[in-house]
Design a protein around this nucleic acid. Structure first.
Lengths: 150, 150
DNA sequence: TATTGTTATACTCTATAACTATA
DNA sequence: TATAGTTATAGAGTATAACAATA
């Protein structure tokens, strides 16, 4: 208890990093008029193409009602449109606007810039050590979280 | 652009870790009837002792109104009490209940267990490499976030 | 009968502005 | 006049339940 175990030191850093990365992301997105939840939805559309709200709810692990709200907000701010689904008149296809496509491209570029700001030119072996350590931790963390999700 | 830069790989892992750690924390706290915001407030009280709501608002970087709501919730669920401030009748002293003290102790223990689950017995040099890498990244990340806060 | 998306309702976190009581 | 905390109002994310339209 007196000697601060190195595992504790590592977890403390992981926690601080979690907080700081989250803040950085939140403020960056706010500058674009987005929130993390809405951006997550945009991201799913970017990768999966136009989707029904049902598919989005499943992809985001969120209620259908919640998707209605997120799409309402994104529609009102010009990031997505609701199109009729050809073949199922119950469903709507949520689609990225050209502006959203642009913004997503900017975000991808921003991620790359952040990656080099944070991890660029780190001294021999440091980046490798970081990745190896993160992989080891992730391997143990994933099952812990996955178990809670079911 | 074709070769996935190792910096990108590192940031991807940091992001995944951020998400998973956040989920783990949220579900653990939910099991105790707490949210991250309320727990943050509890944490401040644990470290600083009974505090006015004004002090809590400053410590949490949150509006006074928000603290009223958080304290309302924690009071209703038996984690804190509002006591009169001796010497300033405008102010209230928010104080942890015995039960909250217990729960905080459990959380500290839970953190230690998580630390050994995630980082215990990692193989020679891996933990050291992780901490060194995290320190390097944190040193670059802190100024980025601090700048936005002012 | 099952599915898609909505309205209705509710809780949490967050903010600003106006107001009360006290300093 | 300034400060502590509240009420009033508002927006965002989240949930369940009831309901309409369609499959």
């Amino acid at each position: 208890m007196e000697t601060p175990a190195p595992e504790i030191a590592a977890l403390d850093r992981l926690m601080e990093l979690t907080v700081l990365l989250g803040e950085d992301m939140t403020t960056s997105l706010a500058a674009l008029g987005l929130t993390t939840s809405r951006t997550h939805l945009l991201w799913v559309l970017h990768h999966g193409g136009p989707s029904t709200q049902r598919a989005l709810a499943d992809a985001l692990s969120v209620s259908a009602r919640n998707v209605t709200g997120l799409v309402d907000g994104l529609e009102a701010t010009g990031f997505v449109t609701r199109e009729p689904h050809p073949g199922d008149r119950r469903a709507t296809l949520v689609t990225l606007t050209p502006r959203a496509v642009e913004v997503v491209a900017q975000m991808v570029q921003g991620q790359q810039e952040l990656a080099s700001q944070l991890c660029g030119g780190l001294g021999p072996g440091v980046l490798e050590g970081l990745v190896a350590g993160l992989d080891a931790v992730l391997e143990r963390l994933r099952p812990l979280v996955a178990g809670a999700g079911s």
